[in-house]
């Protein structure tokens, strides 16, 4: 039963990814801009152009190209980047950890800001404290992440320079890492000097990504909490003698978290989409930054690889949300 559901799930994921790959493959080939023209110097002869087209298989029909590419992908070969002339797979895997770390830290910051504010707002219902939280949420939500990025650069990079504004790690540092997960590895190796340097690079882009999400979490969780707190079992807990804070934490939070969780899942995928611009803004060497270069250079294989990885991440996040949903809601467990 469980195995069957798992297989169905896996199949839907595969279909989703296949659909994404078709759409991307077609769009980037139909869109104007010729990768071969970008590679050759002006004035190259038509013979040279044709030779290069044939080399990259661009002289065949789109359908043919797609199946050639797909059969490669199924064997783990995502092709060769046109602009960087390296294996797409290793390029993507090299950059992916940086983006995953950035997104994870952003999500943590969003939860660390959003959840306490939601709990505080629900505890202080109808007071100036709640009104203040509402105003802050409104502001955080109505300013997009890249604008927060600029504001943060101005604030913590220029006016009061406490954080690094560019790059992922200081270039002068010797890095002992064997994986690309610099931050996680530095924590595991207890190289806290490196952790500090990585955090000071990552903090501003992560915060810029986190602020709108934090506002959403805080606002939605506060609403759900307030709704749950009118329910009978919460009243019963108050009569039992529990304080307002422990009533929220023990009785209300888990049930109120369900609608928030769904939205956080959806918003987290937006956040990962947001890394593309934010990484560019902070010259952070992640997948998003590479994606922009790939698009500018019409690097078709690289774009396909990156988009497919992003799609895979989205699908996995959805899966994780569903699983956590079942974990939080006992009524869904045997359904």
């Amino acid at each position: 039963m469980i195995l069957q559901r798992f297989l169905v799930r896996l199949l839907t994921m595969a279909v989703t990814l296949l659909g994404v790959s078709v759409v991307v493959f077609v769009i980037i080939r139909v869109a104007p801009g010729d990768p071969i023209a970008m590679m050759l110097p002006p004035g190259a002869s038509q013979a040279d152009i044709d030779r290069l087209r044939a080399l990259y298989g661009l002289d065949r029909s789109i359908v043919e190209q797609y199946f050639i590419w797909l059969s490669g992908v199924l064997q783990g070969n995502f092709g060769t980047s046109i602009s960087l002339r390296q294996d797409v797979m290793s390029l993507v895997l090299n950059r992916l950890p940086a983006t995953l770390e950035l997104a994870t830290v952003a999500l943590l910051i969003a939860l660390l800001i959003g959840m306490p504010l939601a709990i505080l707002g629900a505890r202080e219902q109808g007071t100036a404290v709640e009104a203040g939280i509402d105003v802050a949420n409104g502001a955080a939500l109505s300013i997009p992440d890249f604008l927060w990025g600029l504001a943060l650069i101005l604030l913590f990079g220029v006016l009061w320079p406490v954080f690094e504004i560019s790059g992922r790690v200081s270039p002068r540092l010797e890095l002992p890492f064997v994986t690309q997960f610099y931050l996680f590895e530095s924590i595991l190796r207890l190289r806290l000097d490196l952790t500090k340097d990585l955090i000071s690079h990552m903090f501003m882009p992560a915060l810029a990504l986190a602020l709108p999400l934090a506002a959403i979490i805080s606002q939605l969780l506060k609403l759900s909490l307030k709704e749950v707190m009118t329910l009978d079992y919460v009243t019963l807990a108050r009569v039992k003698g529990f304080s307002e804070t422990s009533v929220i934490l023990r009785e209300a939070l888990k049930n109120a978290a369900l609608p928030t969780l769904t939205l956080v899942g959806v918003q987290f995928t937006f956040l990962i989409g947001g890394t593309v611009i934010i990484e560019r803004l902070f010259s952070y060497e992640g997948l998003g930054n590479m994606a922009i270069d790939a698009v500018i250079n019409r690097d078709l294989p690289l774009i396909q690889g990156i988009v497919l990885v992003f799609a895979l991440i989205f699908v996995l996040i959805n899966l994780a949300v569903d699983m956590m949903y079942a974990l939080l809601n006992p009524r869904l467990r045997h359904g």
């Binding site: 019963l236 807990a237 009569v239 304080s243 009785e251 809601n329």
Partner: peptide
């Protein structure tokens, strides 16, 4: 408020109206 909560918690109890909503569904 704190003492009141303690006194009420120690000396009273509630049998609620609707048993379907008076138990926390996730505990």
């Amino acid at each position: 408020a704190k003492e009141r909560r303690r006194v009420i918690g120690a000396k009273t109890a509630l049998i609620p109206q609707d048993p379907l909503t008076a138990l926390n569904p996730s505990r």
